[in-house]
Each structure stands twice: as C-alpha cells, then as structure tokens.
C-alpha cells in the first residue's frame, strides 16, 4: 500500500494533480454547501461550460489559458447571478442557454484551430498531464485566497444563505455576499477544470454538500463534513484512477457517488 503510494507520487504530474485537486475539492465543497442550499447548484455546471469556451478561444489565439479563462468565467458568474435575481429570465433556463452556447462556441473554435483531437477530450474530461508548474503555483495562491475569504465571511455567508431577506434588512450586505460567492465559485471552477474536466467539475460542488446533509444537521457540521468528505473522495478517486488506469475526474466522481450512498444509508439508519 505504502509502496504503491510512494511510486504513485514519485511522478511529478501526480503530485501536481494531488495538490491542485485537494485544494479545489476543499474550496468546491465549502462553497457547494451554500450554493446547493441557495438552489444555485447548476451555476457551477454553467460556469464550467463557459470556462471550456474561454479555454478553447485562449488556446486558439495562443494566449495564457488561465489568464483568459478566469476573468471570463467571473464575468459569466456575475451575469448568471444578475439574470437569476432580476427574474427576467428563469435562472435555470438562463444557465442552460449560456452553458450550451459557450460549449458550442468552444467546440467550433477548437475544430477550426486544432481539429477534434485528444486535446478536446482533455478539456472535457480533464487530464492530469495538462498542468504545468505555473498552473500549480497559481492554484495554490488562488485556493488560499478562496479559503481565507470563505472563513472571513463565513458568518455573512450563513446569514445570506439561510434568509436573504433578513440579511438584507439587517444590513448584511447580501448583494456583496452573493457577488463574493459567485467570484469564489468562478475561480474554483476554473482551477478545477484542468483536473476534473469541464463536464465533471460541478460534481465537486454538488456531491459533498448533499452527502454531508444526509447525516449532519447544523450548517457548521455540514460545511466541515462536506470539506472532509470531498478531500477524501478526491484522494481515493485519484489513487483508484492510477491503479485502474481510468480517467481521474470520472473516478473522483464515482468515489463521491459511493460516499453519497454510504452517507444516505447512515442517515436512514439514524432516522
């Protein structure tokens, strides 16, 4: 077991995937609790598709992928939030429109520039080899920023998630807090896209929160439990994908599904 682990992490790309993956799993799980409870689960999914489009365009133009993708996805996050809150378009419909639109643009750009190659596959389902040294440093910095802001604004985030009207009435700066959530989510999604892939990254946001809610009954315990479950599932999934030679992102999702089933059963037993 230990030997297997030490061989596994003697590969640079595995170490990189582990660092970025653990950070992203942690951030996604923390934000996910709030997003799921606010009925914003699909925003993560929509944003990852926008990220795919932006990544494709950046690659085609020979620009730095992260530098282009992060601002585009942040802008999309604000836009989605706006559309959902003003009620001019139904939130879910708006997300579906933007995400499929971005996906379509991304596919066209890719097919015009490089053709539908294994690159596309990497974008869609993630690739551990895709990450450079620079990506890892950027991920560590941004991941730390997301975690710090989450802890600092935890009380506000709870208030806005539980009862937005009350938070607004008592000067809780609900708008700013929603913007912050959207911003942090956008950054997390972009960081996670490389490992997990565009199609699968939103599972990191949704699964841990739902899993934790099967057994935990307070916001704090749900948040902590989601974070722990998410990191463990990522680690287990990454190891399993190495052993079974399966795609990392997909294997992590399967680990999350298993955790969900176990927690759901435990929740049933507890009653």
């Amino acid at each position: 077991m230990l030997e297997m682990l030490s061989t596994m992490f003697s590969y640079q790309f595995m170490v990189r995937a582990l660092i970025v993956g653990v950070l992203v799993s942690l951030c996604a799980a923390l934000l996910g609790v709030s997003l799921v409870l606010k009925r914003y689960s699909m925003i993560g999914d929509g944003l990852s598709h926008v990220g795919f489009g932006a990544l494709a365009v950046a690659t085609a133009l020979g620009m730095a992928p992260m530098a282009v993708t992060i601002p585009v996805v942040v802008a999309a996050a604000f836009l989605l939030l706006r559309l959902s809150s003003t009620g001019r378009l139904k939130g879910d419909a708006a997300i579906a429109m933007i995400s499929t639109g971005a996906l379509a643009v991304g596919v066209i750009v890719l097919s015009l520039s490089t053709g539908m190659t294994s690159d596309v596959n990497n974008y869609l389902f993630g690739s551990m080899l895709a990450m450079s040294e620079g990506d890892v440093s950027l991920s560590v910095v941004l991941g730390a920023v997301v975690l710090t802001l989450f802890v600092l604004f935890y009380r506000r985030i709870f208030a806005v998630t539980f009862d937005e009207t009350f938070a607004r009435a008592t000067g809780g700066h609900a708008e700013a807090c929603n913007m912050l959530l959207a911003l942090l989510t956008a950054v997390t999604i972009v960081l996670g896209m490389r490992v997990m892939g565009t199609m699968l990254i939103s599972s990191l946001i949704i699964f841990p929160a739902l899993t934790a809610m099967r057994v935990c009954r307070s916001f704090k315990s749900v948040t902590l439990c989601a974070a722990v479950v998410s990191v463990i599932c990522f680690f287990v999934g990454l190891c399993a994908s190495y052993l079974l030679s399966t795609a990392a992102g997909a294997t992590v999702v399967v680990a999350n599904i298993l955790a969900f089933v176990i927690f759901a059963a435990a929740g049933r037993l507890r009653g």
């Binding site: 009380r155 208030a159 998630t161 539980f162 009862d163 000067g171 307070s218 916001f219 315990s221």
Partner: peptide, 19 residues
Amino acid sequence: DVQNDFPASVWEVVSSGCR
C-alpha cells in the same frame, strides 16, 4: 419565506441575528 429543509442548529439561526 423561511427554508424548512435547511441544516442549521437553533443556535446558528439565533446568533445570525447579531449584527
């Protein structure tokens, strides 16, 4: 207007009123 399926303890709800 209050969510009924929200995981929160009574303490968390009450203390969220503190400004």
